[in-house]
């Protein structure tokens, strides 16, 4: 086991997958000579050459579309769209093209491509650089959406995404960029797509979360340790999400709090809450609640962004309320 930073784990995953399979190529803005806007592709150009590591113009739609066309003709491209917000510029290629090409071609073609994109929420980057847009992507049939909250998951999910035969959007948290964690040495140690992680087993209440919110949920659960036995589930794959793990947990605890950094309205938390309501109605002992950002753009200054994103105190309050207000 090596102890790596989040970005180093991503870098290692790319390096190992490129070494394993020469079809794996990397393209995007600043990924080559600059080594990535935040270092995730550092060293790849020197190691694998300019044919497989391509700096591109700022043409999000076209580089995603190029990755798609390349994926249909023998490559396994990993295209970087610098910020999750910029995915909106590439939405035709992501939503209308990549996500549907397998279906539309009746299985004639597959799109084994990965879009890596960074969510900078929590870094004081403002309304156009800090959005949590995972629900936009998860709403599209044919797209797989994963989000690792720690170095091991970031690495293992990215490797699984590269080996997947369909288009996968890999969201990375810039807030976690320097977080260190244990990472497996085995290049074939993957984190499977569609499998959540129970970070903390508990019996009183289930908290489902993902991405940048995970560590604030951990802090809330730790702070409550003497009062409430909290089960924390890191979803890791937003779509297709691990219904089995979540439903099993809620059936046991009878309580669900969903915590995410995206706004609540029409968010992924609503999907999870509705699914639990449909399948666990008889098991629920309290209303399902959501802790999420207010329905407003992401603010830039630190004090406002801290108020905007669910913090451990707010999360702990919601967990406590779930336990107190429900049926014992």
């Amino acid at each position: 086991m090596a102890r790596l930073k989040y970005w180093q784990a991503i870098n290692q995953a790319l390096r190992e997958e490129m070494a394993r399979d020469e079809a794996v190529c990397v393209l995007g803005e600043d990924v080559g000579a600059p080594g990535g806007p935040f270092g995730a592709t550092k060293g790849l150009l020197d190691e694998f050459g300019a044919a497989r590591v391509r700096d591109t113009p700022i043409s999000e739609a076209t580089i995603v579309g190029a990755a798609l066309g390349a994926s249909m003709t023998g490559l396994r491209p990993v295209v970087e769209v610098m910020f999750l917000d910029f995915m909106t510029v590439a939405m035709d290629q992501v939503v209308n093209q990549a996500a549907k090409v397998g279906y539309m071609s009746g299985g004639h073609y597959r799109a084994p491509m990965v879009v890596r994109t960074i969510c900078a929420s929590g870094r004081n980057t403002g309304p156009q650089h800090a959005q949590n847009l995972e629900a936009w992507l998860a709403h599209v049939p044919g797209l797989t959406v994963v989000w690792g909250s720690n170095p091991a998951d970031a690495r293992g999910l990215l490797k699984s995404a590269i080996r997947d035969d369909g288009p996968v959007v890999v969201i990375e948290s810039l807030a976690e960029w320097s977080r260190r964690g244990e990472v497996a040495d085995d290049p074939d140690a993957l984190v499977p797509i569609g499998v959540a992680a129970v970070r903390r087993p508990g019996t009183d209440v289930t908290v489902v979360t993902w991405g940048g919110a995970v560590h604030r949920v951990d802090a809330a659960a730790a702070a409550l340790a003497d009062e409430v036995d909290v089960e924390v589930i890191d979803l890791r794959t937003i779509s297709p999400w691990d219904r089995a793990t979540v439903l099993e947990s809620v059936r046991r605890t009878g309580r669900l709090v969903v915590v995410h950094d995206a706004v609540a309205a029409f968010g992924a938390g609503a999907e999870i809450a509705a699914t639990v309501a449909e399948h666990c109605f008889g098991d629920l002992r309290a209303p399902v609640t959501r802790v999420a950002a207010p329905f407003a753009p992401s603010p830039f200054p630190p004090q406002l962004e801290a108020a905007y994103l669910p913090q451990p105190g707010t999360i702990a309050d919601a967990i406590r309320a779930s336990v107190l207000q429900g049926v014992r």
Binding site: G65, D92, M104
Partner: peptide
Amino acid sequence: LGANAIVGGGLPMALGAAWS
């Protein structure tokens, strides 16, 4: 690789096939 119902949608795809 495909006909396409989005005007211009196939251009980047062809570019990608050329790149590969």
